[in-house]
Structure formats: structure tokens, C-alpha cells
Design a protein around this nucleic acid. Sequence first.
DNA 1: CATGAAATTGACCATTA
DNA 2: TAATGGTCAATTTCATG
Lengths: 153, 153
Amino acid sequence: MDRLDRKILSVLQANARASLQEIGAAVGLSPSPCWGRIKKMEEAGVIEGYTVRLNPQALDLADTVLVQVTLDSHSDNTLEKFGEVLASIPEVVEAHLVSGDYDYLLRVVVRDTRDYERLLREKLYKIKGIRHSRSSFVLRTLKKADLPLLVDR
Amino acid sequence: MDRLDRKILSVLQANARASLQEIGAAVGLSPSPCWGRIKKMEEAGVIEGYTVRLNPQALDLADTVLVQVTLDSHSDNTLEKFGEVLASIPEVVEAHLVSGDYDYLLRVVVRDTRDYERLLREKLYKIKGIRHSRSSFVLRTLKKADLPLLVDR
DNA sequence: CATGAAATTGACCATTA
DNA sequence: TAATGGTCAATTTCATG
């Protein structure tokens, strides 16, 4: 992992379908060393995969809700079970165990507020062990990236 | 946007570098109609781009902090300015204006707690108009996706 | 490690059904 | 719309500096 590797990653971050030629041109290398470096980073687990960035609106998934969850108990068992249940709810796209005055932060993506109300009623409120939950709707997203810049320009 | 389009998207979501042959085989179509559908979705803005999924640990960016921010004033001007300042801080990778008992939720990615402390001191605390902020460290991430499943299996 | 050349595979587009 | 097939460019591999 040197500076060139990071540069390659930032090119891929902007466009994961860039050709080796384009990548090479951007980082000042010929295509084949780029290919070798990428393979190496894939094997090392630095690169976990390649995805597409989709427009939620276009897919009729306009609403994002951030949900703070506090559990009744914090036994290993409860936490484990809770994690499993969450993983099985497709609309819950992120779940983080956090420090602070609540236990979990969830990111939930739904079509609209009606959909969210149904999700709350039919799925979240049925989970045993939730003491309290607090929902915040995302009104506007000012910035959305995955990781900080990998190279100083 | 029909069922086949969604199926193509879910293939790309799992591997954005899949070839048209692979995509075609997965959705039951020959490569060229897949190509046409993808191009159409790119032009329509359904597909915004292609990115790489990176391992934060491997890049020495192990800590994620969720920061709840409350502003002093909620004038258009203040909100606008705040958004601009945040956008210029690389470590702040997400910023959402939310409803509820605080105004913004930020996701901040840093190397470690020392790095975060410095960021707070040198950048966040210097922003005018912040009344209050509350940080929660992500202890463990149970689930991380971008959008709910696009097709029922 | 990088380069450059060779073989293989994929993207893209016109045509046909 | 989908399939077919042809062309051109890209990926991938390897021998060499």
C-alpha cells in the first residue's frame, strides 16, 4: 500500500468500471502494473468488491429514517438475537452498535412514510427487548461518501 | 424499469464489474439487451455510477463516529453555510439534515480516537453556529448495505 | 517492479427476427 | 424488444529490461 495504490483506489472510487488504460493514465503507470496492484489489493482484502451507486428516488425508495434504539438488557444473548433479527429485515440497511445514550443506530430505507409506519408496527415493534426507539427522518442529505479522500490532491 | 432491470441492478450491486455475459446469464438474457438496459438506466439517472467497496481497517480508518449536531439558528443562511463548511471536511463523509431533537447527523471516519479528538478541536468546534454536538462511537457494525433488496428472490 | 507484445475476452452496434 | 454476429478495444498473461 503505497501512494500509487491509494491513487488507484481513488480512481476506482470515482469509477469502478474505469479501464486499466484510464487508471494507468490517471496515476502515471502503464495498464499492467495497475492490474497487478489491483489484484493484490483484492487478495489482501483492501478491495472488498465493486458496486453500483443507485438513485433511491428513481427506485421508489425516497425516504431514509435514522432510528435510535435502546435495549432492555445488554446481555450477550440479547445483543446477538437483536442483530440476527435486524439482519433479516431488508429495509434496515445499516445497523451499528454505538456508545452513548442509546444502543443502536439503524438506517432504514422505505418508499414513503406510510411504508415506514407499517414497518414500525409490523416488524420493529414486534422485536422483543426494545425498551425505546426514536425515529428521525432524513429531510435532506448534504453529503454522502463512503470513506475520506485517500490521497491529498 | 421492469423486473429484469431490477435483477440486472442487483447483479451489479453484488459485482459492478460483472461482464455482460455474466449479467445476461444471471438474468436470463443475452448480453446485448443487458447492455441496452444498463445504458438506458445510466442515462435515466437510475444508475449514478460505479464504486469500489473498501475495507476501512486496511486503510487505517478504523473508527466511525456518529455526531448529532444542533444549530443555534435555523435560517436559510446558517443551514447553507453549515453545509458548505461540512462538505469541505474530508473526514465528514455523510451529513444529513434530519427531523427530531437535533438538526444534523454526521458520519465521521477517522484513524483513531486521537484523530477524532483533533478533528473535533480543530474543525468541528470552530464552526460558528453549532449550539451542541454529541458523539457516538460505532463499536460494531452488524449490517451495512446501501439499499434494500431490489428483487424478491 | 515496470514495460510491451500476444492471446483471449468483452463491449458495442447494426441487422434480423 | 431480443438474439446474432462482426469489429474493435480492453483485459489478462507472460517474457524481458
